[in-house]
Design a protein around this nucleic acid. Structure first.
Length: 426
RNA sequence: GAGAUCGUGGUGAAGUGGAUAACACGUCAGGCUGUGAACCUGAUAUCUGCUCGGUUCGAUUCCGGCCGAUCUCCCCA
């Protein structure tokens, strides 16, 4: 029977991994242009870090973390999200002391123990950015713009941006009271989930999909904002409009992590079963201080790469053709075989992708392999060519064949590739 | 944590309470003794998720359990 991968994990095999490489390289390129620099933090951190930052009572911490005790008797947790580790590193390495704003990005696996569903895995991957050290709403807007640009340039259609302000902790507490006043009398009328949500997370009740009718006239957090929150949110909207980033305001938008203040946003798209959120983020002005750093503000986002890739495939977004193998070397006979070993390596050193047969197969089988690999050229070396110091070079697309001196093989192939590229460009 | 559906070869899959488990693709070999994509011929399953239990003379096929997949609720990426 052998072994099988654990539930919620995936193998990314050649043939589909190229899509991931494309998405990741796009992410890196966009970060370069937005001047975010990569940070790589550990896959696991102390359990307490996540409890403190994500929030003790969040679902993530309460029931989704991969937590275990290591041999040194420490409680460690596989990271369920990226912000906590980055902020920890920001504090530990005193990056706040640097002259410039800290703008970081990461790409990597995250872990959450949940039942599998369309677009949800236990090991999943996120691309995220964190901008630390400024409260300017222009920075919130930049982070949203970065995410939107990522989806656009990767080729995704139908991505919408929803924004909200969740205020400061004080604003939120006051709103929570107002909301409870509104909800309590209706408690019995609400669906089962909402009845339990009233106690766990009342802000979430308004997001109920079962019956929205009860919520008419419900207080909006946007009406509860204080002056500072209000002007921050207003400025954010202005900056987004200045950049032509389309967005809608969703006053019921609530994120699942406790650390957000002011700005909260989500990227949504249809097509992954019941799930529509493909990325999200927000501002977290108290988080750095909460985990023992200076009182530095921050804003960031996390985008789900599985969900991005699934949608790209669903939408039939084509990948640029990959450059595979340039030339396949066919050897006939023992002497030729040794020469092919030498040739193969010299071609590779010259930057040419080259392959050969390793199973002593006949010429016909070798040609089939070459065809399968979709090589541009096949170079055939037999005893007679070898004696003359030449090799037969066949262009697979046309079937044309010519004889070239062994020592010129690399140059001929390189030259052909260049003219080929030029021709395609026309 | 709760629920629904499903589980046959490298892949897509058909089918039956019992005799060689269809078909297609793929792969390999040959037709073409030094030349690929077409065509023809042939070959190609530790036997149907489980060193699980039950019904049966007999189970891949029926029932239960376990495991896994897909999907839904909750929550999220």
């Amino acid at each position: 029977m052998g072994f099988q991968k654990l539930p919620g994990t995936q193998d990314f095999l050649p043939g589909s991994v190229e899509r991931w490489q494309f998405v990741e390289s796009k992410a890196r390129d966009i970060c370069r242009r937005f001047n975010f620099r990569e940070i790589r933090t550990p896959i696991f951190e102390s359990t307490e870090l996540y409890q403190r930052s994500v929030g003790e009572t969040t679902d993530v911490v309460e029931k989704e973390m991969y937590t275990f005790t290591d041999r040194g008797n420490r409680s460690v947790t596989l990271r369920p999200e990226g912000t906590a580790g980055v902020v920890r590193s920001f504090v530990e390495n005193k990056l706040y002391g640097e002259p410039e704003l800290t703008k970081l990005y990461y790409i990597g696996p995250m872990f959450r123990y949940e039942r599998q569903q369309a677009g949800r895995y236990r090991q999943f991957h996120q691309f995220g950015v964190e901008a630390l050290g400024a409260v300017d709403p222009a920075l919130d807007a930049e982070v949203i713009a970065l995410g939107y640009t990522f989806y656009t340039e990767v080729g995704l259609k139908g991505v919408s941006v929803e924004i909200n302000s969740v205020g400061t902790p004080a604003v939120r507490a006051a709103f929570r009271d107002r909301l409870l006043e509104f909800l309590e009398p209706k408690r019995e009328l609400l669906c089962k989930d909402c009845q339990s949500r009233i106690d766990r997370n009342p802000l979430r009740v308004l997001d109920c999909k079962v019956d929205q009718a009860h919520f008419e006239g419900a207080p909006s957090i946007l009406d509860s904002l204080d002056e500072e929150c209000r002007s921050h949110f207003k400025a954010l909207k202005g900056h987004l409009m200045d950049m032509n980033i389309p967005f809608t305001i969703n006053p019921r938008l609530v994120r699942g992590l406790d650390y957000y203040t002011h700005t909260a946003f989500e990227f949504k798209a249809e097509g992954i079963g019941a799930i529509d959120t493909i990325g999200g983020g927000g501002r977290y002005n108290g988080l750095v201080a909460d985990i023992g750093g200076p009182d530095q503000p921050g804003v960031g986002l996390g985008l789900g790469l599985e969900r991005t890739v699934i949608l790209l495939e669903k939408q039939g977004v084509e990948l640029d053709s990959l450059n595979g193998v340039d030339v396949y070397l066919v050897a006939l006979g023992e002497a030729a075989d040794r020469e092919v070993t030498r040739l193969l390596h010299s071609l590779r050193l010259r930057g040419i992708a080259a392959e050969r047969d390793y199973q002593g197969r006949k010429m016909k089988a070798q040609m089939k392999s070459a065809d399968r690999l979709q090589v541009r050229f096949t170079a055939i070396l037999g005893d007679d060519e070898l004696q003359r110091g030449e090799i037969s070079l066949k262009q697979m697309s046309t079937g044309e064949q010519r004889v070239v001196p062994l020592h010129e093989l690399a140059d001929v192939i390189i030259k052909a590739s260049i003219t080929n590229i030029n021709n395609e460009g026309v």
